[in-house]
Every structure is written in C-alpha cells, then in structure tokens.
C-alpha cells in the first residue's frame, strides 16, 4: 500500500490522516490554524517524514468554500515543496465511507443553500446539485442517505435509513488517494483545483440580474 497523506477540511470531521492514524479538527477550531499542527503530529507519531510520502491526497469539495481552499493551499504547497504528486478526491467520496458495506446504494447529501443539496450518488460516484424533492423522487426505500443535508428536509429524508452526523473522513481520503495513486491518477501540485460546485454568491446574483 502506498504511503499517502490524506487531507480534508471541507466540513465537520475534517483533519488529516496517515497510515491509519487520523487527527480531526473540532468544528469550533479554526481549520487554518490547526491543519499543519496535526500533520506535524502525524509525521511524529508515524515516524514518516515528508520525503517518505508517495503522494498527498486532498478532499477538494464540495463543502465549506474556505475549508476547501485551506486544504488545497496546504496540500498543493506541501506537495510542491516535497516534490510529490497530489491526488484530488471528491469530499463526498470520503463521507460515503460512513455507509455500511451492505448498502446497495448510498446518497451523500450536503446543504448547498439556496434550497438545494449537493448530492453524491454511490456506487457511481456522480455529483449533482438538486432540490430535496428531486433528490428523493423515485429513490429506492432502502437507499442509505448520509450527511448534514438530511436536516434541510427532515420529513422527506425520515423514511430513508442513514445518518445526519456523518462528516468528512480524512482516513478515507488517504485510502482512496492510495488507490488512485496506484492507478496513476495523480496531478502536479498546481493542477489541484477546488470542486466548489457553485459560483460565488456575488457571481450568482450578477448572473440572475443580467438574465444569464
């Protein structure tokens, strides 16, 4: 198995993971403050140095826009400096790791605001933006629905099994990163890009105003 540092600070549960060890940053703590300290702790505890890494995997969103950027700026600069490749992993792929292995179909739902959800559909791994109504339409009753997006429409999601408190999983990002690295799906550090799935609010308002 490759030695991959996993980073995802796009939402609750965020932090970093290396060789099965994970440190998370409590939601009340500034992610920009604590990310490098927990990476330093992981290196110390595992005895791994930056030069020993095969790659750095980073959760690129969707999620907190600021969190996405803290993760990417940190992962890309670390990788650039250590001359290592990076792997981009969708953050909802990390959250999907909370589902029981027996679940045939899993939806990860995050609050996208503006009355919509970011929806990650597994096992296909496709991401989309949809209203809660559209999300549950024709959905098989045994679909496992994970993520804080359940709270956007509690009544709609109540019939479906799942959990609301499923956060991002840096360990899963590291694991998926190792698989991707083995498949050669790596990027140069400067190619690591956020997956916001949304324009910024001012851009949305401008587009609406201009009728675009």
């Amino acid at each position: 198995m490759a030695t991959v540092l996993g980073i995802d600070v796009t939402g609750p549960g965020g932090g970093a993971s290396l060789l099965g060890k994970t440190h998370t940053i409590p939601p009340a703590v500034a992610r920009g403050r604590d990310l490098i300290p927990i990476i330093a702790r992981l290196f110390e505890e595992t005895g791994i140095a930056g030069r020993d890494l095969d790659a750095i995997a980073c959760g690129v969103g969707p999620g907190s826009f600021t969190g996405i950027r803290i993760g990417i700026a940190t992962a890309a600069t670390l990788a650039y400096t250590l001359q290592k490749p990076v792997v981009a992993i969708g953050s909802m792929h990390g959250i999907a790791g909370h589902a029981p292995a027996a679940a045939a179909r899993v939806l990860v739902v995050l609050n996208a605001r503006r009355g919509e959800l970011f929806v990650g559909d597994f096992p296909t791994g496709a991401y989309r933006c949809a209203t809660p109504d559209d999300t549950v339409r024709d959905l098989a009753p045994d679909t496992y629905v994970l993520g804080e997006g359940r709270a956007v429409a509690p009544a709609l999601f109540a019939p479906f099994p799942g959990r609301e408190d499923a956060g991002v999983r840096p360990d899963r990002i590291a694991e998926l990163g190792a698989f991707a690295w083995a498949r050669g799906e790596t990027l140069a550090p400067h190619e690591l890009r956020p997956h916001y799935m949304r324009l910024s609010d001012p851009e949305i308002r401008r587009a609406e105003r201009d009728g675009l």
Binding site: I36, R69, I70, A73, T74, T77, L78
Partner: peptide, 19 residues
C-alpha cells in the same frame, strides 16, 4: 479579507513546515 488571507497563510505554513 479572511478568505484571501487563509490561502497565503496555508501556503506559507505548508512551505515553511516542509522546508
């Protein structure tokens, strides 16, 4: 601006830490 500041800070910390 906090969002912009955090990009530079994250990069600076990662660079200084790695070196």
């Amino acid at each position: 601006l906090v969002g912009p500041l955090l990009v530079g800070l994250s990069a600076a910390k990662a660079f200084a830490f790695a070196r």
